[in-house]
Design a protein around this nucleic acid. Structure first.
Lengths: 140, 140
DNA sequence: TAATATTGGTAAGAGAGGCTGACTAAGTCA
DNA sequence: TGACTTAGTCAGCCTCTCTTACCAATATTA
């Protein structure tokens, strides 16, 4: 079977589990697209344009998603001291809370995968995928 | 880094390459969603409901996509001899042609990955992902 | 230093893709 | 026969993403 499709199956399984955990923790208004963007927010805040680039969407799309995240209280926008045009998107407390839940769910799923593949097999999988980023990820 | 996200990066790289090859071959009206659905059509044709299940979308969505594929000449709908309610979605010649292009692009990308990871590494990657399907793919 | 180009971001509108709910027609089974 | 299930359609809605067009601030350069 096609390697790309195999990656997709694993990826989707992870995504479904994480979103389920997040929803069960009470954050039932968060969508996948919002989560994907929010996952790129750095500890000191990140500019919209940078988020758009990394998530590989247009800045309009990124702006649309950040609007929603802001309205739902997950992030805030603060002026960027380094550039008056720009604003930094930062995690709000509610955002930090959901990140914690997501990280935990990720760890749980990875542990499950490790039980299935073995420690060695999982390490190899991670190494192979990480190495692949060098030729597949423009933002590696 | 999160294993799920690593899978996503590789998957998207493959998808982008395949869609680019397909578009360059003149099939520039095919979308990703249509392709994902069409990839599930079996040699003898497949029922709409079955396609929907396997692609994990509702049958309404599947019907919508098959409408488009039919209008563009990629597939045909024929009555299912086994059940007068059902119809079989089958590949049309134009559909077969695009499948051939897609398969070729997939093979090319996999070859590139193999050059990067080595034969052994690629085989391990495939083995790990295939094994993972046992716990991540409800339609394995 | 003034004109020009670039960069960060917003606004408006359109289209794709997905969903739910309600429905018809055909098959299944008690 | 009547109740239930299954294959598929119809209608309406929401989310995400794009393109085109624009404004404001910064950088560059003549």
């Amino acid at each position: 079977m096609n390697l790309g499709l195999l990656c997709f199956i694993a990826y989707r399984a992870m995504e479904v589990e994480v979103m389920k955990a997040v929803a069960e923790a009470g954050f039932d208004d968060l969508t996948v697209a919002q989560g994907r963007l929010a996952a790129r927010i750095g500890p000191e805040g990140t500019r919209l344009t940078e988020l758009a680039e990394q998530a590989q969407v247009t800045k309009q799309t990124a702006g649309f998603l950040v609007d929603q995240l802001e309205r739902a209280g997950y992030v805030t926008r603060t002026p960027d001291p380094a550039d008056a045009r720009a604003r930094l998107v930062r995690m709000a407390p509610r955002g930090e809370a959901v990140v914690a839940v997501a990280r935990q769910a990720e760890a749980r799923v990875e542990a499950e995968w490790t039980r299935h593949l073995g420690k060695r097999g999982t390490a190899q999988l991670r190494a192979a995928l990480t190495s692949l980023r060098e030729i597949t990820d423009p933002y590696a």
